[in-house]
Structures are given as C-alpha cells and as structure tokens.
Amino acid sequence: MKIIHILVLIVCTSCVACTKVVKLPLRTAPPQYVIEGNITDQPGPYLVRIFETTAFYDSNSFKGITGAMVQVSDGRGNKELLVDSGGGNYYTRHLQGLPGNTYTLNILIGTDTFSATSIMPQLVPLDAVAIGQITNTGKNVLVAMPEFVNPAGPGLSYYLFNQTINGVLDKTLYYWNSQYSAGQANGFALARTDPDSTLHVGDSIVIEMQCLDERMYKYWSGLDAAASGNGGSYPGNPVTNLTGGALGYFSAHTSRIKGARVN
C-alpha cells in the first residue's frame, strides 16, 4: 500500500506544470498613446501623465509626451489647463477634488483629441489596517486586512487597494465591490499573488484605499483578467473610459492612506 502512495505522489509531481522562459517572435505595433489621469479628494496637485507604449522586449522606460494641451473640469464651472512639467507630466494647480463631482478630461496632442469623464463617488472611510494570518495556496501567510464597512446602498461601492511594502509597490491589483457585502464589515484580506505571498515581521506597509466609479472598477478588473499577462481571460485591452483610441484611464476617486507595521 505504501508503495502505491509513493508512486501516486511521484506521478502527480513528475512534471506537472513545469515552466520555462521562452523567447517569442513578437511583432511590435507602432507606439500608442497612454494616458493616466488621477483626481483624488486629497489636496492637489493632481497628475495626468501622457506617454507611449514600448516594445515587449525593450526595457520598462516609457517616453513621455510633452507639448500636449490637457484640461480638467469638475462639472461645477471650474476648468483648469494643466501645467506641462516635462517628461509627459501635467499638473493641476488650483483644482480640489470633491466626492459627487463629475470630472472631465480633454487632451489635444497635435491633431489628436482624447477625452474622458469620471464620477468621484462618496467616501467610504478606511477605519484601520490590521495584520492577520490566512492560508493562501496552502501556506500560512501574513496579510493586511483593510477595515471598513460597506455602505448598505442603494447602489454599489467599488474599491481599489494599493499596498506598498517597505516602499516598494506590491504588484497585485486588489479590487472588489459591495455587491454581496452591502452593510457588512469587510472580510477580505490583501492576499498577494506574488510567489512571496506573505508579509514579513518588521515590514512597514502603506495601504491606499480608493473608492471609484463603476467604469474604473471594470477597467481594473478587466485589466487584471485580460492584460496583466497571467493568462486568465482571453487577452485584450481593458475597456477604457478614454475616447479617441488612447490606452490608459482617467480616474476620479477618494483616497485614504493608512500605514501599519508588521509585528
């Protein structure tokens, strides 16, 4: 009987899911414009970045586009032309983001125009960040657990979390919504999909909680499923709220940051 068990385990482990790095003959498309615009309810300035895509096998440095006309308005009569600070970065000067406003972005680069709207939802406050232990793919890991209460509705709240560990951005995208949790305290933890899926004692973590509108939520969930390279859904470009054919997004969201130390 024992031998059978050993054999069974051997069979199961004899190259099941072996991986190797391969070099693919990829065709590079001409560079596409990428726009990242973020308006938050924290004090400004707010940043809109314009840059270009680069080839897959090139290094991750992206050429910024200067000389564009970038305008943001808040639907309450406040309009601002952003300052071109070079390197593809455009900053607001006076605008203050407020929940409930519909923000509109308009961009002119040469003869190409791009625009987007995003609604900043009402704030769902981040009460605290706790550190707890869960089981993730069979291992006991330490994770951050954002503490907040989902609004009871009507309507849904959409969230995006960014976690920074010892100053380095955690690449996992954390996003969820209140559809099944209306009125309930949050039960989800930030479970990393990185091979090193645990926090370590002594780590200093910073959590940003964003409340977004539905279109931006779908952008992040679509991006994670189809464009982050992990082979989930059929690959493709996430549905963006930008018109005009640019990649990227324009997001008006509330932002709360809390830090914690892992003991």
Binding site: L24, L26, R27, T28, A29, P31, Q32, V34, E36, F51, E52, T53, T54, A55, F56, N60, F62, L160, N162, L169, K171, L173, W220, L223, S228, G229, P235, L247, G248, Y249
Partner: peptide, 11 residues
C-alpha cells in the same frame, strides 16, 4: 500575444 507594453497605476 502582446504587441507592446505600458504602465497603469505602477503595474
């Protein structure tokens, strides 16, 4: 397969 890459929210 991808024909290029870019950055969104640091990823």
């Amino acid at each position: 397969y991808p024909s290029g890459k870019y950055i969104a929210d640091g990823r």
